[in-house]
Amino acid sequence: MDSTLYPHHPASAHLDHLESHSVFVLREIAGECDRPVLLFSGGKDSAVLCHLAQKAFYPSPIPFPLLQVDTGHNFPEVLEFRDVRAKELDCELIVASVQEAIDKGLVKDPGEGESRNRLQSAVLLDVIARQGFDACIGGARRDEDKARAKERVVSLRSRFGQWEPRHQRPELWSIYYGKVNPGEHLRVFPLSDWTELDIWLYIQREQIELPNIYYAHRRLVLERDGMLLAHSPYLTARAGEKVFEETVRFRTVGDMTCTAAIRSRAMTPAEVIEEIMTFQVSERGASRADDRFSEAAMEERKREGYF
């Protein structure tokens, strides 16, 4: 048993503050919302979020289900991790399938090799409405993107699932208000104040398991628009593109068709942290082909109901 908590090891104190505040947010949502759900993609941020949720309610189980929107183009390693983790946490896992939505005609298939990222919004809003979720807890961070930097920790979505960045609820101190009108819902971002580096320092400290594609591995890739994309059944080489093997890892994890790998030899959290210190390109700039087309790409998608 530890005798005291603070002051800690100095590098750890900052993580303790972040951790305590995120747990506070999770507990507020559990206490105030009727039917929250935790968006669990299997990526590193949502893995951290699950870890925090486990701590927040320990020894009770996490009091809400997990939800993943499966584009049908996800990394198999990530899907496997998702299933194993959900079982370990003893949580109900709801998978909303973009492929099913395409088959039912709810959304339109953008075609081979095209990102299904944007389709996720419609599928997510559909499952929110069907299941009556009033709060979706996600792992987005403000340091990821300029539009995300404008987010509240607890952010209201209209009856149409839309984000109205010009009319956000004031968010004073750490008072988070969890009530909504019928049809509206909340998006909750307990990791708002965490940076990419904080996430990795925490993964290292807490020894949080991640899908292995976050660490260096050999993979068949192809280069497109200056990015290394994984060669897969969903993404094949166009004329003039060569498929080659490279030692890579992924900084973020999403749809296989739009998530780029980086050349890396980092095999452990410590090596990843060392690597992050030298990065000159932001996380999304390095790994998300879908955000590079327009300056306001993220804002547009967020307005439509994206995570």
Partner: peptide, 16 residues
């Protein structure tokens, strides 16, 4: 007293 699942003797604000 528990700090996120770990039993402790003392905790200081702003700990959860």
């Amino acid at each position: 007293l528990f700090y996120l699942g770990r039993e402790v003797e003392e905790a200081i604000a702003p700990a959860s």
